[in-house]
């Protein structure tokens, strides 16, 4: 059997995993705020969070470059702390994947949290529980199925990010080249067998995740 470079696939898994962890933390918090709090501009926030779902990846990548680049406060802060710039590193790929996956997380988790009967939360409050405990012991467990499904969607989406990743992390083999970028690279130079294997693996993982997600949400609505 030919020697395949597994680095892009391993990098993609690592990027997707870290991005998913970030997206779960930020996304569930946002979803809770959107589902349970009333404030002016709530739907504006929802629309902003959803935007990456419909924007061209190049637009997303452009914004990220501006936000994380050497001239931005964020980019400068990171460079000051780590001594290295953020763009064109695999960490930048994490940022790109996370932004792309956030809308899926927020949309799904918001629906899951909104479907929890507020009376359970009120009951917990009357029993002396604080808002944080209500969230942790009542809302979260009751929305868990939807949130797990959302995390799997987020992971699948992170695994497949291409455009934004290419723009902010580049295509540096052995450093920032993720699987989706490697597939593009391989087809450009005629390494069709490499492209095929990576494509099949990514497809299989994505299919398995979607299948599990459907099973989870179907049981939830039963």
């Amino acid at each position: 059997m030919r020697n395949i470079d597994w680095f892009p696939l391993l990098l993609s898994l690592r990027v997707a995993f870290i991005a998913t962890v970030l997206v779960v933390v930020v996304g569930v918090a946002l979803a809770w705020v959107l589902a349970r709090r009333r404030f002016i501009g709530r739907e504006v926030v929802d629309a902003l969070v959803t935007l990456p779902l419909v924007l061209p990846p190049t637009v997303l990548g452009y914004y990220l470059l501006v936000l994380l680049g050497r001239r931005s406060p964020v980019g400068q802060a990171v460079e000051w702390v780590t001594g290295e710039q953020l763009v064109f590193t695999w960490q930048a790929a994490v940022a790109a994947a996370a932004v792309g996956a956030l809308p899926l997380m927020v949309k799904t988790a918001r629906a899951a949290i909104a479907s929890v009967d507020p009376e359970y939360e009120d009951a917990a409050r009357t029993l002396g529980r604080s808002e944080w405990q209500v969230f942790l012991y009542v809302t979260l467990p009751l929305a868990a199925r939807g949130i797990i499904a959302a995390s799997m969607l987020a992971f699948a989406r992170s695994l497949g990010d291409f455009g934004a990743t290419l723009m902010v992390a580049g295509n540096i083999p052995g450093r920032t080249q993720t699987a989706s970028v490697a597939i593009y690279d391989a087809t450009q130079v005629g390494r069709d067998a490499d492209a095929l294997i990576l494509a099949l693996i990514l497809s299989a993982v994505a299919f398995a995740l979607l299948y599990l997600t459907n099973r989870l949400t179907a049981q939830g609505s039963r």
């Binding site: 359970y120 009120d122 917990a124 409050r125 029993l127 002396g128 009542v138």
Partner: peptide, 17 residues
Amino acid sequence: IRERRTGFVFQNLALLP
């Protein structure tokens, strides 16, 4: 609410499922 100690029994009971 949590500081009122009211012993509320909801119409649907609201037992945590």
